[in-house]
Design a protein around this nucleic acid. Structure first.
Lengths: 250, 250
DNA sequence: CGTAATCTTGACCAACGTCAATGTTCGTGG
DNA sequence: CCACGAACATTGACGTTGGTCAAGATTACG
């Protein structure tokens, strides 16, 4: 990461508002101590900063504290595939702490605040606290279910449906974090990001957006997304929200 | 599952040849005892049998002992997306033991032998043995990396590349299990299965296969797959084998 | 106020899906 | 051993979806 883009601030884990959200698993006092101990610093990076670069072997992982980021692959051809959007409370690069050099990159989509965690201590906590390890596994299995659904979206839906799916799915994730109201949320992604997430060219992603707008299903303008009837859009594209489980947060 | 398709046989975990493979993590004696205890039966099911059906809430999971299976989603439209191919040693429905009712189905592609495990005991082992839980997490994170690569394949490769990718990826998985020689392996999938795995129609999957054959990259005939030069095909489609890690096996 | 980035659209071409017909394989019963 | 049917494989023809190129409009920002 380009440290020039970063500066440190301070927030105590015990005071962290994120942990209080219903979406996340409450922490035992011991675990909170362990997590606070492994937290090395609090970083703020500019939009566009690469937080993690594929292939780098760094024994560090992160929790996204504030802002948006995207996990992605970049092909030799220059094409990019966004694997998923990372929202506050999600772990970043947990895999590289356990498996070594990562296979994906992560880029901040907005100004982003990160908690920096020492990978070795994360592994140590996982290997010493079975309840915690089991909860992280549960969270990871839930991620797999979300990814399975995205595979199906990419393999089996047409352009308009893919974009619609991506929008409701993201909207739902925001809603669970209290970052969206009934029909509206912030949406900082550019058209090219949407295209890279749903496997379309930028031009065709545009057309899909136009069609969704024409059908009264979704509209992006001025950096915010409006979905008049989320349930209807979900039904239209076959999105089924996963049952809420309390996610592990580092 | 249709029990009529199934019958019981017996194989002891301690004698299991699968566990001896380098691909899998060796077991501590205690863990082996715990796993042997949670193993309820050994089943053999016919090709085509649904081992797990999406939405079913069964507190049971499986280890595929022998044969091939596929994890898939089925849309209301009747379209099917194969999420991945399951080979011997892989866990089936582990997610439903930890998260409840599954979101995917699993179907046997060949005659398949399964170890049936009691979900509650699996969870108990995970929550009591931190080293084991961490290893299962590692395995799951590795699965995520494989799935990430598949997302990229679906989103960014053309038909011929997608089929080629699917073939080498599967070939590599077989090779690691000692189920393939240098250029050849069994390949029991039908054309429709390939199409459902790579997000193409059956007709177009056929054309992609024809192109791969014409280019001397891959050939399927008589139930077996030949890849003259796996490294070349891998390079052609951008497949990068993951570093081998010892996978947890239940 | 000007420059660069992004958004938006039209025109045209390639990739992919659908329909439909024919060939091939394999299992079953005679 | 052969006859038959069912499932699967293969291919052509044609329509639709999505990619590419290129240009103009709009926005963000110094």
């Amino acid at each position: 990461m380009r440290r020039s883009d970063a500066h440190a601030t301070g927030v105590r884990c015990a005071d962290c508002m994120l942990r209080r959200k219903r979406l996340f698993r409450p922490f035992s006092p011991n675990e909170l101590v362990a997590v606070a101990a492994m937290k090395q610093q609090h970083l703020v990076v500019a939009a566009g900063t690469d937080i993690v670069r594929s292939g780098e072997r760094v024994r560090i992982c992160y929790t996204l504290f504030d802002g948006w980021a995207a996990r992605f692959h970049e092909l030799k051809s220059g094409a990019r595939q966004i694997l998923d959007v990372i929202l506050p409370g999600e772990a970043i690069a947990l895999d590289s702490a356990l498996l070594g050099a990562g296979t994906h990159s992560v880029r901040a989509l907005t100004v982003a605040a990160l908690c920096v965690l020492d990978g070795k201590q994360v592994v140590a906590l996982l290997e010493s606290s079975p309840a915690f390890a089991a909860d992280v596994l549960r969270t990871q299995l839930e991620n797999e279910r979300r990814t399975d659904a995205r595979l199906t979206m990419l393999g089996r839906l047409n352009g308009e449906e893919r974009v619609g799916y991506f929008l409701v799915e993201t909207f739902e994730q925001l809603r669970r974090r209290g970052m969206a109201d009934e029909t509206r949320c912030a949406f900082p992604l550019r058209r090219a990001d949407i295209a890279d997430a749903v496997g379309l060219s930028k031009v065709h992603a545009m057309r899909a957006l136009r069609a969704l707008r024409a059908h009264g299903l979704a509209d992006i303008s001025g950096g915010s997304l409006t979905i008049a009837n989320p349930a209807q859009l979900a039904a239209h594209v076959g999105f089924v929200p996963l049952p809420t489980t309390r996610r592990a947060i580092l």
